[in-house]
C-alpha cells in the first residue's frame, strides 16, 4: 500500500474524506437544482473548488459544513448568472398549479414545489430539514445572520405548506385557478 500511504491517514488527509461527503453533497444538490445532471455538475464544481482551496480549510473544523459553504457560493453565482429565472419561476408556478397530472408522483410534487420557492428559502429549508444542520451552522454556511435564517425558514416552510395544500385542494379550486 505504500503508494497511497500518504492519503491513507484519515486525520491528516481531508482528501480521502472528500469522497465520504460526495453522497450527501449530491443529495443536497439534487434537491436544490432542477435536474440530476445540473446537480452533479454543481457537486463536481464544488469538489474542484475544494481541492484548490483545501489549504484554506482549517483542520479540526467541520469539513462537511465547509463543503456546503463552497457549494452555496457556487450555487448563488449560478442563480445570479441566470437572472431572468424569476419569470421562469412564475410560469412554472402556473403550470404546477394548473396541471393535475403532476400529482401522481409525490416526489415530483415536492421537488416541483421546492423549485417554486426563492432559492434562498429553498437552501435554508433543505440545509435544516434534509441535511440536518443546526440554525447557527446554516447561518455560517450561507454567510447570513441567524435572524435571516430563521425568517427564511419561516417564510419558506409556510410557502411550501401553501403550495402543497393548494395541490391537495386542487380538485375543488381547479376551475377557478385555470380560468
Amino acid at each position: 500500500m505504500s503508494p497511497s500511504r500518504e492519503t491513507g491517514e484519515p486525520r491528516v488527509s481531508p482528501r480521502s474524506d472528500l469522497i465520504e461527503h460526495i453522497p450527501r453533497l449530491r443529495r443536497y444538490a439534487r434537491a436544490l437544482t432542477r435536474d440530476a445532471a445540473q446537480a452533479d455538475d454543481l457537486v463536481q464544481d464544488t469538489l474542484e473548488r475544494a481541492l484548490v482551496k483545501l489549504d484554506l480549510w482549517r483542520p479540526g473544523s467541520d469539513l462537511r459544513a465547509w463543503l456546503f459553504t463552497l457549494m452555496h457560493n457556487l450555487f448563488v453565482n449560478q442563480v445570479r448568472a441566470a437572472a431572468p429565472q424569476h419569470a421562469e419561476l412564475d410560469e412554472a408556478r402556473e403550470i404546477a398549479i394548473g396541471g393535475g397530472e403532476m400529482d401522481a408522483l409525490a416526489l415530483r410534487d415536492i421537488h416541483a414545489a421546492l423549485c417554486l420557492l426563492p432559492a434562498e428559502q429553498r437552501e435554508v429549508i433543505l440545509l435544516v430539514g434534509l441535511e440536518q444542520f443546526g440554525y447557527a451552522e446554516a447561518a455560517r454556511i450561507l454567510g447570513v445572520p441567524l435572524g435571516t435564517v430563521m425568517s427564511r425558514l419561516s417564510r419558506g416552510r409556510e410557502r411550501l405548506r401553501q403550495l402543497l395544500s393548494d395541490k391537495v385542494a386542487e380538485p375543488a379550486i381547479k376551475l377557478k385557478v385555470v380560468k
Binding site: I22, R24, R27, A31, D40, V43, Q44, A50, L51, A106
Partner: peptide, 21 residues
C-alpha cells in the same frame, strides 16, 4: 425531503465525481 432525496445517497457514484475529488 428524505423520502424524495435519500435514494440519491445509494446511487452509484459517477467516476467523474471521484476524478474531480
Amino acid at each position: 425531503f428524505h423520502a424524495a432525496f435519500d435514494p440519491v445517497l445509494n446511487e452509484p457514484m459517477p467516476l467523474e465525481l471521484l476524478r474531480a475529488s
